[in-house]
Nucleic acid binder design. Structure first.
Length: 584
DNA sequence: GCCGTTTTCGGCCCGACTGTTTTCAGTCG
């Protein structure tokens, strides 16, 4: 389940938002926000820290440390409660609408009594906004567009939130006597980027104890339905969870059925029908006699239909049935194939942890290499300079001397450090530094951070030019989308992918759960051009380093094998790729 | 509210963009 750090960070963030909404001191709000981020990204569990220990977290002083210790021991956060009493929860949710910030949300609440997204939409349609100072027709339009964008995420949760919840439910139910199997299925098992609701399956003879324990979970806010084979609940994470208890005999058929996708299931059932069989969540049956043939394991069901077991990530009816029939399913990349991370930050720019800490934690993950890629100067807020990044290079080289030589017990030996940078691709496709300076880096990630509104042609040219830069190795978060917040930029995918393949530039699969960029469909398309990929955490804190698993999940949905991903390669092969055909 | 080669006050990542204004507030990264 979520660490106490995440829980505390969320409360501090809420407090910061409410300060901002009520027009409190903007600096104070920012301090709470910063503290929330620092605590969320802190390596040690805050529950193990006293007030003194908390104050060692940067951005946490006496006042915040006291509030956190009070909250952890009593569950009270008085200052927050006071603001909550003044501002309905819905007003804070308004600020989640892209383009609508705390000040406008407060004005809407004070002047029009708006305290939910629905009321907001109603007010816009009633043309009540345009009389307000600072609001006009374009603002109305932008807000409506923002609401639409938010709703297109359909109230779906990010995969890390859903996975966290599912793993906790599974762990709890697995401990109950009589539990023979327990696992999550559904879109979460297929690794989709966002999750509508969580499906958990239990194999057991008796369902009662499981239904009871499930409904009593501490984060269950409402039991929607409860019967002998299925219980549905809403949780305080905003996600619904369905629990199904099935007879042990039906486990495989049930997993197949509830994992989906619907389209995949339909195709599989069609095959069954043609074989004079009938497939349901209870098993594979002879259509005439009704006799059950197989149902204990997914493998058995697929096998009886003449198919090899199909990995859940592929079950979208995107050609996996045909590939399975021809025995041409790809050997999908696995998390253990990754040898390193090629896009990470430190507190030299907007990361939270210092270089040594990030490196130490990365080494624990067993990486063979690790690239530090802080932001370059054109992202002005980061205040990078040549001097600062060269000083960092010295530190990286020194640490490489320590970690690179370190003998390790596993097969991989020590962890080599690469010094890199995340460049900013400007509107013309140029990047921060001249070629001479870029040549000093081991790896250059280049990403778009602004001017998302350019035309399709301009954006295409911009990315192609970045690829053609002989020092740019990886295009970072290529579409720049933020799930539920910002749509991706639109460019000619085929033209850019072709440029990547031609120039030896990798496309990133940014593994952060709110990015997952490239997404699965685009990966499928890119690999047809022969594009190489880099699965990167883009970590800004120690816990972020673990996000690689979501990138691997997305890569699997894009049918990728290990060989197509440059950070599965041994370092010598990787270095050759990073030279991009240049001499040296 | 935090922090300190400005050390108990006075700063606080800095700039662009947008839509509203006619000089600026709000939002975003």
């Amino acid at each position: 389940m979520a660490r106490s750090n995440d829980e505390v960070a969320e409360l501090l963030r809420e407090y910061a938002d409410l300060i901002a909404i009520t027009g409190g001191d903007a600096f104070k709000a920012r301090v709470y926000e910063k503290a929330a981020r620092a605590i969320g990204g802190h390596h040690a569990d805050v529950r193990t820290l006293d007030a003194e220990g908390l104050r060692e977290i940067p951005g946490v002083g006496r006042s915040i440390a006291d509030k956190v210790t009070a909250y952890l021991s009593t569950g009270d956060f008085a200052a927050l409660e006071k603001l909550r009493a003044k501002i309905p929860e819905g007003v804070r949710r308004l600020t989640a609408v892209p383009g609508l910030g705390p000040r406008k949300a407060y004005t809407l609440h004070q002047e029009l009594g708006v305290s939910s997204v629905d009321e907001l939409v109603e007010a816009i349609h009633a043309e009540r906004l345009r009389d307000l100072k600072g609001f006009g027709p374009r603002t109305e339009e932008n807000i409506l567009h923002g609401v639409e964008l938010m709703r297109s995420a359909g109230g779906r949760a990010l995969i890390d939130v859903a996975l966290d919840l599912a793993e906790d439910v599974v762990a709890t139910l697995s401990r109950i006597d009589g539990c023979l199997r327990c696992a999550y299925a559904g879109s979460l098992r297929r690794g989709r980027e966002t999750i509508g609701d969580v499906d958990v399956l239990v194999a057991a003879e008796e369902s009662g104890p499981f239904m009871e324990a499930f409904a009593a979970l501490p984060y269950v806010s409402e039991v929607i339905a409860r019967g002998p084979s299925k219980t549905s609940v809403r949780t305080d994470k905003g996600l619904s969870v369905d629990l199904r208890v099935v007879p042990p005999d039906s486990w495989g058929a049930a997993m197949l059925y509830f994992t989906g996708s619907k389209a995949h299931n339909i195709r599989v059932r069609e095959i069954a029908v043609r074989e004079k069989l009938k497939l349901s969540e209870y098993g594979l049956f002879d259509a005439e006699s009704g006799e059950r043939i197989v149902s204990r394991a997914e493998e058995e069901v697929y096998a009886r239909l003449g198919l090899p077991w199909i990995p859940p990530a592929l079950r979208e009816d995107r050609g996996e049935i045909e590939a399975a029939r021809e025995d041409a399913l790809p050997e999908l990349i696995e998390e253990s194939d990754l040898r390193g991370d090629l896009h990470t930050h430190t507190d030299l720019t907007d990361g939270l942890a210092p270089l040594e800490r990030m490196v130490a934690e990365a080494a624990k993950l067993g990486h063979a290499y690790y690239a530090v890629t802080d932001h370059a100067p054109n992202l002005y807020m980061q205040q990078m300079t040549e001097e600062r990044i060269l000083a960092q290079r010295e530190e990286v080289r020194a640490l490489d001397g320590v970690y690179g030589r370190r003998g390790r017990t596993d097969r991989r030996g020590g962890m080599r450090l690469l010094h890199g940078v995340e460049l900013n691709i400007d509107p013309d496709g140029e990047v921060d530094w001249p070629a001479g300076f870029l040549a000093g880096f081991d790896v250059c990630v280049a990403s778009i951070h602004s001017h998302f509104g350019q035309s399709r042609e301009e954006l295409t040219r911009r990315l192609v030019r970045a690829c053609e830069n002989p020092h740019v190795n990886i295009i970072g978060h290529p579409t720049t989308r933020i799930l539920g917040k910002r749509p991706g930029i639109e460019f000619d995918l085929d033209e850019v992918f072709a440029a990547c393949a031609r120039t030896g530039t990798a496309m990133e699969i940014n593994a952060h759960p709110n990015r997952l960029d490239l997404r699965d469909e685009d990966i499928l398309r890119a690999r047809r051009h022969g594009v190489r990929f880099a699965i990167d955490s883009d970590a800004h804190s120690v816990p972020d380093l673990g996000h690689l698993r979501f990138g691997v999940g997305t890569a699997r949905r894009g049918w990728l094998t290990a060989d197509e991903v440059i950070n599965t390669w041994p370092l010598t092969r990787l270095r050759r790729f990073l030279r991009k055909g240049r001499r040296g």
